[in-house]
Design a protein around this nucleic acid. Sequence first.
DNA 1: CGCGCGATTGAGTAATTTCAAATCTAGTGG
DNA 2: CCACTAGATTTGAAATTACTCAATCGCGCG
Lengths: 189, 189
Amino acid sequence: MSAELRKHIEEIVPLTDQEFDFINNHFKTKSLKKHQYLIQEDEFVKNIYFVVKGLLKATYTDINGKEYIIQFAMENWWISDFQAFYNETKSITNITCLENVELLYISKAHLDKICSESHKMEHFFRVKNSSGYVALQQRILSLLSTHPKERFEQFTHQYPQLLQRVSKTIIAAYLGISRETLSRLSSKL
Amino acid sequence: MSAELRKHIEEIVPLTDQEFDFINNHFKTKSLKKHQYLIQEDEFVKNIYFVVKGLLKATYTDINGKEYIIQFAMENWWISDFQAFYNETKSITNITCLENVELLYISKAHLDKICSESHKMEHFFRVKNSSGYVALQQRILSLLSTHPKERFEQFTHQYPQLLQRVSKTIIAAYLGISRETLSRLSSKL
DNA sequence: CGCGCGATTGAGTAATTTCAAATCTAGTGG
DNA sequence: CCACTAGATTTGAAATTACTCAATCGCGCG
């Protein structure tokens, strides 16, 4: 029984106790320690994960071994390799824990089941996905139209908590700039 | 009665004639000529648009007057300022026609209505939104991890039709590089 | 105390941008 | 059919920006 998940869903759709029980029964829990892998490259991705506690990063590593941050996930965020999950293909990303984490997760079959049996949940995920889409468009626009300095300022403003919890090196990999450049930038603020 | 829309929806959910009629009745049609605006900066955005025929671009213009392409939309794609649409705020983008265009459109109220009255449509848009999300993650990864040359090659491979229909200047604005750089790049292929 | 990781700093290099000018192309009207 | 124009593309050269590589610093922890 996860109060966090219920509260998260009810920000979009109110639920009866029965409805929430039904939903909740399709989730399982998982705990991981800092540095552990949630998803590794080349694996099939069976689940999406809801973060109850902790912080993770999803990364892509190029042929030169350079790492790029696709997304972070902290409390009340969802994370997975969504491409691999939806298409039922192998992951090209790694997801690792930046802190100890507590997760809830649901398989694709169960997700499809609760969505088809509960119109409310179908609605919930439609709305979540559309918000996510808009957020990614914003990130694209930021990558296209702003210089590193401005991008870092936007990030600082948008995710002040992450600034506390994540190393600058990793933030640089999220913003698409080198750690040295980010260092020079942040000393100028 | 739009055969294109029906076919598009039925790629994800099969519909009876009655169901499609119900859905179709909530859409209206609109035609625009090349160069005309579909959405202008600072307007409220009441609708999302399904492209039956033609090609459009959604752009953001920065304080220096430089233009960045947020998205293209051609046949069977959806377009709007989704941020403004979902949040019911004013648009910060312009959407203009790169060709003569035939559109179907639906308001937020009607969209919410057909989704709440038809579980199938709620499902359809959930799936569409999740595919869109994955596509944007791919674009972000491409912006983060690849050089202009590789990015252009990916684009060429992914959207060969757009290469024919859109000027290089505009493609450069989509890829986040200057038109001169793109020109130098494409001569090296 | 010393190790290790992250952050910082400096110097040189590589890539892309900017600005300006030249070239090419398609459409229009005479 | 040709000349003309507007827009798009290409080319060149200089300037800028961020990157790479290497060395150093700083701090927390065993």
